[in-house]
Nucleic acid binder design. Sequence first.
RNA 1: GUCCCCAUCGUCUAGAGGCCUAGGACACCUCCCUUUCACGGAGGCGACCGGGGUUCGAAUCCCCGUGGGGACGCCA
Length: 464
Amino acid sequence: MTVRTRFAPSPTGFLHIGGARTALFSWAYARKHKGQFILRIEDTDVARSTPEAVEAILDGMSWLGLDWDEGPFYQMQRMDRYKEIIQKMLAEGHAYLCYSSKEELDALRECQMQEGAKPRYDGRWRPEEGKALPEVPAGVQPVVRFKNPKTGLVEWSDMVKGHIAISNEELDDLIIARGDGTPTYNFCVVVDDWEMGITQVIRGDDHVNNTPRQINMLKALGATIPQYAHLSMILGDDGQKLSKRHGAVSVMQYDEDGYLPEAVLNYLARLGWSHGDDEIFIMEQFCEWFDLDHITPSAAQFNTEKLNWVNAHYIKQADLNVLAADIQKRLLAKGIKTDGGPDLNGVIALYRDRANTLNDLAASIEYFYSQPALDAAAAEKHLTPDIMPIMKAMLDELTVTEWTVEALHHVIEQTVVKNELKFPNVAMPLRVMVTGGGQSPSVDAVMQLLGKEETLKRMSVFCA
RNA sequence: GUCCCCAUCGUCUAGAGGCCUAGGACACCUCCCUUUCACGGAGGCGACCGGGGUUCGAAUCCCCGUGGGGACGCCA
């Protein structure tokens, strides 16, 4: 049987890191098994779903490069089908109408909580042999409830967590259609996973408790039960649960912060999944290696420092032209034009090894395209009165020097020798004059890229 | 409260009874490289939650405890 997996987000917000990993694993599983990956938008919560959120999720998916074979399907567009099946379940006695009001149910829940019992529907409208149902109240739109088996065990072998068994006595009769007739999540999922032929349901850990109910409904419908794989959650950098209020950010934020999608993907892949000691792998390799057997059942804490390391790795590997286009865009956003300035590819080639993020990289080369700010501490330390005459002499020399790294290096070296100094005694003041600070790659390489005119101009300011 | 799940270095993890004096990666520390800062290279620090079993032998299997998380919606 061909593998068919799905990613089924609800459009109530952006695609965050947890959702992205779920999508990645579902996608990879389908790719690995040469199956299909389906995107389904679960938008049955009309009050909270927005078209902007759908957009945001689609943007996130495409930034990561997670492509789908079918969809996106929208559950709101499948209403007629759900209602049809609800009618069928009603007719077959798998579901029934319930006229209990929300207030009534709230009171019931509260009462049960106080008694220390698990809050659940007590089945007051559940038709039973020889049982008298309450009188139907006037003007109440009934909900439809699924008639869950009262006894027995629901069990499945979770592909991540292993064997799980839950007693039907723990389950109540859940609502499958609201008072206004719209179906609810647990029901739509069941119908869709069934009719879309999903073979492996790979989803978040928070759905474990829904699984036995869904299996029961699947059984009532005579559907085949898919395999389930429940992924544990991702905790924030501080070990706390991620929520809209705390730490959960859109994957697009990582783009903005200067992370490469391949780095985010690689990092996410290693969060909860492993392949021996391997840390770095491109997606093609990941799809080949990926399997559900090596997923950890326990929660994982997000670690930005490791993401930085992975990102730095991909910055070192990236195609120079692609990198340059990205950096150009980032600098332009800060009002800095690179056109007509020093060779951007050359500058990036010299600086890429020292950056964790694209934003770091962009910031580190700003001074090639705009006037650097002077680091006062560095200036005080290196631009000492006794070195200034020497620097001035070197400036004169540089005016007639061929502008190659080798020639520049030679001039610095000669200055060092002539004055009986050490290399840093000359290189550091020079570095401060040219870059404004005390840290940069080899100063001769920097000068070469910066260009003769601009270099001499910057030195002159100090050697006047 | 009830049910479900989880538990190896600070973090991500390897580990399917002997290969484990527990391996790798990030971070941290030291040294080397060096034109400063990085990069890179070489070392180092650092963990099987506790208690009982099972077994010749347990990080690995079982039980209990403890700790963490999740779920208990006319949300998904």
